[in-house]
């Protein structure tokens, strides 16, 4: 009951914040509503038992990305340009297209019977979420009788309670204690994420170089440029 209440509160905050971001014309207020919306998403993550992710969302998004954007707002919001108004016509067109898009999404996502689909899937090797367990999880939030051993139930329970940090960390090293890879064989359903974990660091390095290059002032005079197309 309390979970439902929390869900609806944060869901409304998330959606309301997002709508407010669209509706507001002042960029500073937009930034505020963005913080509200993204913060509520973090709360939703907690509700989904993804504690680490929720924390990361708060730290990286609300603490990092949005601050970056606010910096951008401050650097560019000089004088009359703080509020650049969208003309009403464009707003109406945008709204109409948005509503149509939402209809498309809702009509195709909203009525899917996820339980039935999962039921048709082949079972993951030693996955704690077999089709049966899902229905039961729906029914009573219980993981008992999941048809698996005690150890696995523990593991699943740990996951359901949101303590996923250790597992996430291990999966970044290419290890998946939550699934038995040896018996999974060719199925290979539970990859470790060693490669992306490492390669993202290269990506971040490159991206920061690029961002720094674009942001810093050119030290030489512009007139010396070889190319003058403008």
């Amino acid at each position: 009951m309390i979970e439902q209440l929390l869900f609806y509160t944060f869901a409304i905050l998330t959606c309301g914040g997002a709508v407010a971001v669209v509706a507001t014309q002042n960029v500073v207020r937009m930034a505020f509503w963005l913080v509200v919306s993204l913060g509520s998403v973090a709360a939703l993550f907690f509700l989904l038992h993804a504690d680490f992710l929720g924390a990361a969302q708060l730290l990286i998004y609300v603490g990092g990305t949005v601050v970056l954007l606010v910096f951008g707002v401050m650097l560019t919001a000089s004088g009359p340009y703080t509020t650049i108004k969208t003309s009403p016509a464009e707003g109406i067109i945008g709204g109409a297209v948005g509503l149509m898009l939402l209809m498309v999404l809702v009509s195709s996502i909203g009525s899917v019977d996820w339980g039935a689909i999962s039921g048709r899937l082949p079972a993951s090797p030693e996955s704690p979420f077999t089709a049966d367990s899902i229905r039961e999880a729906h029914a009573e939030e219980s993981l008992v009788n999941a048809g698996s051993t005690k150890a696995k139930t523990d593991l699943a329970a740990v996951q359901q309670q949101g303590r996923t940090v250790r597992q996430l960390g291990l999966s970044f090293l290419g290890l998946r204690p939550d699934r038995n890879l040896k018996e999974g064989g060719a199925n290979g359903l539970a990859p470790g994420y060693f490669l992306p974990f490492e390669i993202v660091s290269v990506h971040l390095l490159v991206v920061l170089i690029g961002a720094a290059y674009l942001a810093r002032a050119k030290r030489r005079a512009v007139s010396e440029d070889r190319v003058s197309l403008d």
Partner: peptide, 24 residues
């Protein structure tokens, strides 16, 4: 399962990187 969370985590990181370049 856990894969969803992992992907989400990477998306957050990638989004931050993209935001940095986009802002620049």
């Amino acid at each position: 399962g856990l894969d969803g969370q992992t992907v989400a985590l990477f998306v957050i990181v990638l989004a931050a990187a993209e935001a940095a370049v986009a802002l620049a």
